[in-house]
Design a protein around this nucleic acid. Structure first.
Lengths: 341, 341
DNA sequence: CTGAAAGCGCTTACAG
DNA sequence: CTGAAAGCGCTTACAG
């Protein structure tokens, strides 16, 4: 049982393959009569064009690659969704894959993406594989970096202003009167993790908060590691009156740690987190946080892509650094007791 | 600036394209010397094979399609991730798209998927488009339905036992002494929504709970609709002592409604939900629920796909109906007051 | 308006 | 072990 080809359709309809191609693509002159014969033949044979053959000839694949860290990350998928919808309007579709923050996997998939001749690539990079990313760009494939930079690569970019978001988070806590502020930070060899930590540290210094190093603990962007660090913070002889947590995954661990010890937010401790997640609104009290404007990032990404795809414009990288906004809910209050440094 | 082709590599290396193809595919005899020359030329020219041309000739695309309802649904993406990882081992990759529960979009994308000549399709269907789904199967593309059936189509299938899960949820509430049980149900023209409602209704009848129809309210698998229905339930002159909510999205609305009215779980009302979500564990109290065994569904799906892909076995549809399990946490208690029916 | 023909970039027998 | 040639299923000028 071989595949039905355009030739079979042509035979059945009693016309040339050229004519079939024309009705398939709605292009060039075809008589109404021919068109009808062809359409009937297509129907009768249940013919489907072969996308590979088509794009080989037309050298347009109508595919856009998107390579993310984790396919199960709702933050990224919300961006992916906006992009997918926008691409659909352009008649393109998404080739979506994930590298799970593994550089070898990322390299392999970048290779695959080039082989697939995607017309553009949206990349949430591991941060490594600089040369490979540059190779993609050299192939004249527009690359849009989202969420994270790749050091030394100049291309379209949309990222949060991580430093700013962290700085403002600490500033807010400080404005409520906190000076012993705990920080649970992420992976610092990652630009996102580093910028968020730096922002927090600088704010702590600038605003005259406690410089006690035992207040600054690693969570590695991992829920369980954060649980451990959070527990350590809570057990400190002189514990912090507020904790700033650098991302959602870690905040899950933090909340568990607080719940497990029966500590009350915000009476016993104030909490602020970097990143939106629907569940933070459901907690009692709902969490105060530094938002990532997902909708905006998705929309901006879609616009950028569309421009690259349609306009085929000369390559002047656009860099968008989006400031997160403080969303005040009820997980922060002024500290009850004055605490010595 | 045209693309580099196998011909360019052959010229540069001073060999035939046939030989280049052999080293590319590690297949057939090539002398070490030739191989080296070719590899150097590939390197020098930065050559990437053209996947379209390759699959046109080899008539193997190494692509598996996955069409889901929502790309941003963590439940589905967790399944997608397991499948993607497993596919990678087979040298295949995922073409992931979403139809947003819109039948026209689903039809369009099924068309696209056939054109792409995927080697298999994982489909979370809208439930409609029966003929189109059948067409895909007729093209000898193995189709695996996940989460939901398509009436009248016989193919591989992995679904939750929705009826059972609902029935057991009510049974659990009844065993705690509840007899006025509220139900917030989903879209009933959808098999999942219908089965869950039926299971709950039958259990209510079988176990002698209140048949008061005002206790059974629609949420349409939507958070805000569920919020409205939940509020109505809570405001009833004789409100339910427990509520069973048929999916996570609606549970979000339910929890908000309960929080907004300052009602305490489980003291004032018991809550049970169908479906896992990491956030339910973080609530105070953590929610009791009927689990969907995501890992298991993902793994089973991956196994099924692998068999279809590798074995190319004769088409005997496998149907897996997976029983969810009750996960007891702290959101259910016995009713405080005896309530008249 | 229609058909014959070239060619997209590969792979695969087949001769040598 | 190597190369020349056919052909995968399309699209696109080009003649007619």
């Amino acid at each position: 049982m071989k595949n039905i080809t355009i030739k079979d359709v042509a035979n059945k309809a009693g016309v040339s393959v050229g004519s079939v191609s024309k009705v398939l693509n709605n292009k060039g002159y075809v008589s109404k009569e021919t068109r009808e014969k062809v359409e009937m033949a297509i129907e009768a044979l249940n013919y489907q064009v072969n996308a590979a053959a088509r794009s080989l000839k037309a050298s347009r694949t109508k595919k856009v690659g998107m390579l993310v860290s984790y396919i199960s990350n709702p933050y990224l998928m919300s961006i992916a969704k906006t992009i997918e919808d926008s691409l659909r309007e352009l008649g393109c579709h998404l080739l979506l894959m994930s590298h799970n923050e593994d550089e070898a996997t990322e390299r392999e998939l970048l290779q695959l993406i080039m082989e697939q001749r995607v017309e553009a690539l949206v990349l949430i990079p591991t941060g490594g594989n600089r040369e490979m990313v540059q190779t993609v760009i050299n192939q004249k494939i527009p690359v849009l970096l989202v969420d994270k930079k790749v050091e030394g690569v100049s291309t379209d970019l949309i990222v949060d202003d991580n430093y700013y978001g962290s700085y403002e988070s600490i500033k807010y806590l400080s404005s409520l009167g906190h000076s012993r502020i705990g920080v649970i930070y992420g992976v610092t060899k990652n630009s996102v993790g580093k910028e968020r930590l730096d922002g927090a540290l600088d704010a702590i210094k600038d605003l005259g908060c406690s410089l006690d190093e035992s207040l600054i603990r690693p969570g590695e962007f991992d829920s369980e590691k954060a649980y451990k660090s959070a527990t350590e913070l809570l057990l400190l002889p002189n514990p912090p009156t507020a904790i700033y947590c650098c991302n959602n995954t870690m905040t899950t661990g933090l909340i568990k740690a607080i719940n497990d010890r029966g500590i009350k937010i915000p009476d016993d401790i104030s909490i602020i987190t970097f990143g939106d997640a629907s569940q933070w609104e459901l907690l009692q009290p709902p969490l105060t946080l530094m938002t990532q404007p997902l909708k905006r990032i998705g929309v901006e990404a879609a616009i950028l892509l569309k421009n690259r795809l349609i306009m085929n414009e000369e390559y002047l990288p656009k860099q968008l650094i989006i400031k997160p906004e403080l969303q005040i809910r009820s997980s922060c209050a002024s500290p009850k007791v004055e605490v010595r440094d």
